[in-house]
Design a protein around this nucleic acid. Structure first.
Lengths: 201, 201
DNA sequence: GTCTATATACTGATAGAC
DNA sequence: GTCTATCAGTATATAGAC
């Protein structure tokens, strides 16, 4: 239930965001949204064409927020490794899963080009952003040049998405952290050998 | 629609397995199962107590099958690295997602200890199996001893689960492969330096 | 903008005939 | 074992009063 000071469309969008995160698109009914938002049926259908329309607004906002959250960490200063590490170790509501990534398991979202678009764009953006940082890192001699930045970036995003799966499977946020530490250990081993880097200078 | 030679309970379980894979628990109705199985309402409720009971039978079988499929690759001969690589590169119905892992995004599955148990057990088993293989690999000098087998095993499972997310997000199986190649590249860089391994012998 | 009434189809199940 | 009938409740709206 949101503050009365939030407009009805706002409350509907925010309620939809929460319910989509918690129950997915298939598991979220207009009625549940209305009750959560404290809005009537007519009110919802006055402001939005229907469930897909409202979901689209909610998904777009969630996607945008996720990009902003990631950018806040990835756009920081520090070495490439430090920024990737900061991204992986940033605080997360691990047991709730990724509000964007979970939508890929929703058949009705995947079946709709419109609903899927913000998901695709966000994960693509994240992978490309990480790839750019990794490329910088390679150029600076932080990582061995043998790494393909795009492949490693994909592995990073996948580890995070899969980390949510492991955490939810075992009902322990620690399972997420374990996977992330495994990835960081592998990434750390790809630091360009210091001795060689030094001798190359 | 299954062969008439399959018993009704069998057809119901197999139909449930397919629908759970495709639409999840929340998105799968008893009616849809019955139609897919070519069975009537009464028939389904005669053999199973209800939707959760039937889903449990289906999930258990899917989990068992996944363990068998993984074991067929992981139990093979070859170096630890080769077996992990074979597991990661094995053929998959990538765009359909992981029939076990996708259940972690199903609120009703996660909320039920009984339905969640086979999921937890399977992913735990897979991580432990991989950890054992990695430990072997470290003992044989294939990987640097600085790696924690359990952490890396978690990262491997997570990359696979997240690979499905990336593939479904972009509707391209290649996205899965890209993430896997990234992980394999990182893992390859953790091969115990050959020169040092030789000099240590 | 919000409300109530109404509508069709589906959900998940029970009852009892055959 | 399978079938049809029935049921209370939900899903996803539309219509029209206020």
């Amino acid at each position: 239930m949101y503050s009365v000071r939030m407009s009805t469309p706002e409350r509907l969008i925010e309620s939809t965001r929460e319910l989509l995160w918690e129950r997915g698109y298939v598991g979220t009914s207009p009625k549940a949204i209305q009750q959560h938002a404290g809005a009537g049926q007519g009110s919802m259908y006055h402001h939005f064409a229907g469930k897909p329309d409202l979901a689209l607004a909610a998904i777009r906002r969630t996607a945008e927020e996720m990009r902003a959250t990631a950018e806040a960490v990835l756009g920081g200063s520090g070495s490439a490794h430090a920024r990737v590490e900061a991204y992986l170790l940033r605080e997360r509501d691990v047991l709730k899963g990724c509000p964007v990534g979970r939508l890929t398991m929703d058949p009705d979202v995947i079946a709709s080009d419109e609903l899927r678009a913000p998901v695709t764009e966000t994960l693509d953006w994240l992978r490309d952003r990480l790839a750019g940082i990794l490329e910088e890192g390679i150029a600076r001699g932080e990582f061995t040049a043998s790494l393909d930045p795009r492949e490693v970036a994909s592995a990073i995003v996948a580890t995070v998405q899969g980390g949510y799966v492991l955490a939810r499977s075992s009902c322990t946020p620690a399972a997420f952290d374990t996977a992330v530490r495994g990835l960081l250990a592998l990434l750390g081993a790809c630091a360009a050998a210091p001795s060689r880097a030094v001798s190359a200078n």
